[in-house]
C-alpha cells in the first residue's frame, strides 16, 4: 500500500461522494412522501449545466450552486405537474424526465463547452487546516462537503422529530388516511418533489463546478441511477444513505488508488468492488431485527386523487 496517503484518501472520498449523497438524500425525501421519481439523472444534469452557466455568468461559485439547485427544482416541477395534476404514471414520467433532462442540458450547454468555471475554494479554517492528518481530512474542503452532511442531519431530524416530518411520512404510508385527516397530500408531495429536484440539481452543480470543473455533455454519466439505488439499499434512512454514498464514493476512490499502488488484487475485482460492497453492506444492515420498519413507504409509486 506504499504510496497511499490515508489522509488524502479520506479527503478524496468526502469530495467524491458529495453528488450522489445530495441526490440520494433528496430522492429519499421524495420517496418518503410516496412518490417515485426516476428522473434523478435528468435533474442532476440540468443542475450541472444551470449551475455551471450561473457560475460562469456571475463569476461566483456560490451563485452557481444556487442556480443548480433552482434548475433541478424547476425541472422537477414538470414531473410534479405530470404525476400530481395529470395523474400520469410515475415510472414512465420519471424516465421521460431523465431523457428530457439529458437532451435539454446538451442543448443549453452548447455555448459553454470548453469554458472554465470560477474555482470553488476551501472553507478557510485558519490554523485548524494545519493540524497534521485531521487538518487535511476534515478542514480542507469546500462548503458543499460540510453542507451535504448538515443536510443529511437536517433531513433525519426533520423526518424523525418534527410534525412536518410525521405528516410527510403519513402521506407516504397512507395517502387516503392522511387526506381523511385533512392534510393536503398533493401540496406536501409537490414540496417534497421540489426539494428532491433542488438536491439533485445541487449535486449536479457540484459535479460541473468542483469535481470535474467544466461542462461536458453527459457529465453525470449515471450518477443519478447510483443515487436511486442507494436510497433503496439504505432502506429510506438518511444516515444509511450517507453511509452508502461514502462507501460507494470511498471504494471508488480506493480502488483507483489501489490500482496505482499495484497491490496485486486483479483490477476486475477492484472495479466491481464499489457496487458490490455498497450493496452487500447495506443489505446486511437492513436484514436484521425490526426489518418491518425499514420497508418501503406503503404508497410509494401510487398516484393520489381526492375524488377517488
Amino acid at each position: 500500500m506504499g504510496g497511499i496517503d490515508p489522509a488524502l484518501l479520506i479527503a478524496a472520498l468526502l469530495t467524491a461522494s458529495v453528488p450522489i449523497l445530495l441526490a440520494s438524500v433528496g430522492e429519499l425525501v421524495v420517496e418518503r412522501s410516496g412518490v417515485l421519481n426516476l428522473g434523478v439523472e435528468g435533474m442532476m444534469i440540468i443542475g450541472a449545466i444551470c449551475g455551471f452557466i450561473t457560475a460562469v455568468e456571475t463569476g461566483s461559485p456560490l451563485a452557481g450552486f444556487l442556480g443548480g439547485a433552482a434548475g433541478g427544482a424547476v425541472l422537477s416541477l414538470l414531473f410534479a405537474v405530470l404525476v400530481l395534476v395529470m395523474q400520469a404514471n410515475q415510472v414512465a414520467s420519471g424516465l421521460a424526465l431523465t431523457l428530457f433532462g439529458l437532451g435539454l442540458s446538451s442543448l443549453i450547454g452548447q455555448n459553454y463547452v470548453g469554458i472554465k468555471p470560477p474555482l470553488t475554494g476551501a472553507v478557510p479554517f485558519g490554523p485548524l487546516a494545519d493540524i497534521p492528518f485531521f487538518g487535511k481530512v476534515f478542514f480542507s474542503h469546500d462548503l458543499l462537503v460540510y453542507l451535504s452532511v448538515v443536510l443529511v442531519a437536517a433531513v433525519w431530524a426533520f423526518l424523525k422529530f418534527t410534525r412536518g416530518g410525521l405528516i410527510l411520512r403519513a402521506v407516504g404510508e397512507s395517502h387516503e388516511a392522511a387526506h381523511a385527516l385533512g392534510y393536503k397530500v398533493l401540496r406536501i408531495r409537490l414540496m417534497a418533489i421540489a426539494f428532491g429536484g433542488a438536491m439533485a440539481g445541487l449535486g449536479g452543480a457540484y459535479l460541473s463546478l468542483v469535481r470535474v470543473p467544466q461542462w461536458v455533455d453527459g457529465i453525470t454519466a449515471g450518477a443519478g441511477w447510483i443515487a436511486l439505488a442507494i436510497v433503496v439499499f439504505a432502506s429510506w434512512q438518511p444516515w444509511r444513505a450517507l453511509l452508502g454514498a461514502w462507501l460507494f464514493g470511498g471504494i471508488s476512490v480506493l480502488q483507483l488508488n489501489l490500482q496505482v499502488a499495484e497491490v496485486g488484487i486483479p483490477v476486475e475485482y477492484l472495479s466491481m468492488s464499489p457496487y458490490l460492497i455498497t450493496i452487500v453492506v447495506l443489505v446486511i444492515m437492513s436484514s436484521g431485527k425490526g426489518r418491518a420498519s425499514f420497508a418501503a413507504p406503503a404508497c410509494l409509486g401510487q398516484n393520489f386523487h381526492a375524488a377517488r
Partner: peptide, 17 residues
C-alpha cells in the same frame, strides 16, 4: 466516457506522486 471517474483516476495518480 465518465468525467467524474476520469477525474478521480487522475486524482489517484496525482495523490501518489
Amino acid at each position: 466516457f465518465d468525467p467524474a471517474k476520469e477525474a478521480d483516476a487522475a486524482k489517484a495518480l496525482i495523490d501518489q506522486g
